[in-house]
Design a binder for these strands. Sequence first.
DNA 1: TTACACCCTGTAGCAACTATAGGGTCAAGC
DNA 2: GCTTGACCCTATAGTTGCTACAGGGTGTAA
Lengths: 133, 133
Amino acid sequence: MKIGELASATATKVETVRYYEKISLLPPPARTSANYRAYGSEHLARLSFIRRARDLGFTLEAVRELLTLSDDKAQSCEAVDGIARVHLTEIDRKVTDLTALRNELDRVIGSCRHGTVADCKIIETLGPRNTKR
Amino acid sequence: MKIGELASATATKVETVRYYEKISLLPPPARTSANYRAYGSEHLARLSFIRRARDLGFTLEAVRELLTLSDDKAQSCEAVDGIARVHLTEIDRKVTDLTALRNELDRVIGSCRHGTVADCKIIETLGPRNTKR
DNA sequence: TTACACCCTGTAGCAACTATAGGGTCAAGC
DNA sequence: GCTTGACCCTATAGTTGCTACAGGGTGTAA
């Protein structure tokens, strides 16, 4: 399997695959006589895992941990569960923050009376209390 | 007003203030004989504007546009409104995506039976369909 | 005078890629 | 047999929005 095939099989860009190799997230594959990377199914599995975890918003560092943990099949999956829970908490915080921000922005936009910039409520809201200039 | 005072008045780090000057978001202020930056109230107003817009999640490029628009007081504030609305749409999309992700992660975590990694549902969910290795 | 907080410039680092330059390889079609 | 085009290679720089040095200068107070 060439890099382009692996990339399209996992909806990843070729450059990203090479990047994952460079940061040691994906092991270096064998090479063909033309120095092309030759991937096997284990690479496909590992890259799929990485992409899926990334899609779920895990950082590369978290992915690295999850990969290490998933290699030790005998171990309890408590640590895995822990990483996922911490991540869930972070996402919850982000959603809360973004929602608050969304509502404030909505309020700001709602105050727009579509006049000139001079009495634009949006601009006004952004400035400090009565800025003259 | 020295840079440290301006920074603390706007809850900004000194380095960030210098950074904004470097990328021409904040005009270069006068200098004292010791080559210290000397800011006036117009700098305070502008930096407050920038920080407030950033807090609302506008990108620096959007802030730059808003600043340009806010300088032309006679102009209709349609463009300002437009930028804000585009931004609101983006935030809405992010909230939707994050919420979907949150729910999926929650489901994944919920499936954890706290056994060994070998039959960890979280790890399993991350992998492609039955990976053998 | 010496300690300390503050200021200066310039550069490198962070995450997680993405893009570019400047090449090599390979199969198909003429 | 030769060219075209799609693919591959390495190495490096760019992206966003800062943040953190390193290696200096300045100002004030005990």
